[in-house]
């Protein structure tokens, strides 16, 4: 029962270690986390569970983060899901593509977990 009240966060990254730490800290912060390890899996899972927020990596096998973002943001059913993008690149050009594909927030590696939790709180507590 308690679980259903918790906001759902979907983390998609092929780096298992990154996913693990994110999952740990976000669960600690009181969210329910779902994980996927490639783009396709992530997209399917997103459509299945309808998360409240998604954290995506850019470079992933099968479908990259931007494509997932675009597919969801152009779909009325999912377009309200906030998307946070993790990237190792801090190039502004990336951000431009991100803006065009509807990414809400950028997290540049290496990132502070507190920063991520703070951002997530901003998006989910405001509602």
């Amino acid at each position: 029962m308690e679980n259903e009240l918790k906001k759902k966060i979907l983390i998609v990254d092929d780096e298992i270690d990154i996913v693990e730490t994110l999952k740990f800290i976000l669960e600690d912060a009181g969210y329910q986390c779902y994980c996927a390890f490639d783009g396709e899996e992530g997209l399917n899972l997103a459509r299945e569970i309808m998360p409240d927020l998604m954290i995506l990596d850019v470079m992933m096998p099968k479908i990259n983060g931007y494509k997932i973002s675009r597919l969801l943001k152009y779909d009325n059913k999912y377009k309200k899901i906030p998307i946070m993008m993790i990237t190792a690149r801090s190039q502004d050009e990336d951000k431009l593509i991100g803006e065009e594909t509807g990414v809400n927030e950028y997290i540049t590696k290496p990132f502070e977990l507190d920063f991520v939790v703070g951002k997530v709180n901003e998006y989910l507590k405001a509602e």
Binding site: T21, A88, K109, P110, E112, L113, D114
Partner: peptide, 17 residues
């Protein structure tokens, strides 16, 4: 540098936890 960032992030996050 890009390649170094991913493992670095994982170490950093683990330590933080």
């Amino acid at each position: 540098s890009h390649e170094l960032r991913t493992p670095l992030t994982a170490i950093k996050n683990s330590l933080e936890i």
